[in-house]
Simulated scan of single mutants.
Amino acid sequence: MLVELRKNAGLRQAELAARLGCPQSFVSKYESGQRRLDLIELEAICKALGVTLTEFAAWFAQQ
């Protein structure tokens, strides 16, 4: 779902990573399931993608 959000935002992994202030490998690892996210990280990712954590949770619940 995070991959879809990123692509809908028109961002590449490197661009999202720059917004988050982290390496591109961070984005790659959580998108591929190699890394889990904590709530603080998920909130930062949502913010960088222009959605609130509440909006993401509602969208997640519908999937």
Rank of each mutant, 00 (worst) to 15 (best):
L2R: 02
V3K: 14
E4M: 11
E4D: 15
E4R: 12
L5A: 10
R6G: 08
R6N: 10
K7E: 15
K7L: 13
A9N: 08
A9K: 15
G10R: 01
R12N: 05
Q13A: 03
A14Q: 05
A14V: 11
E15R: 08
L16G: 09
A17K: 06
A17P: 02
A17S: 01
R19H: 00
R19A: 03
R19T: 01
G21H: 07
G21A: 01
C22A: 11
C22Q: 09
P23K: 08
P23Q: 05
S25R: 14
F26M: 09
F26Q: 01
S28Q: 12
S28M: 02
Y30N: 07
Y30C: 05
E31K: 13
E31V: 09
S32G: 14
S32V: 11
G33R: 04
Q34M: 05
Q34T: 02
Q34F: 04
R36P: 00
D38W: 06
D38Q: 05
L39G: 13
E41A: 15
L42I: 09
L42Q: 13
L42W: 03
L42G: 09
E43M: 11
E43T: 11
E43L: 02
A44C: 10
A44G: 08
I45E: 01
I45A: 06
K47Q: 12
K47N: 14
K47P: 00
L49M: 12
G50E: 13
G50V: 13
G50Q: 13
V51T: 15
T52L: 02
L53E: 03
T54P: 03
T54L: 10
E55Y: 02
E55V: 09
E55G: 09
A57F: 10
A57N: 08
A58P: 02
A58N: 10
W59D: 08
F60R: 11
Q63M: 01
Q63N: 03
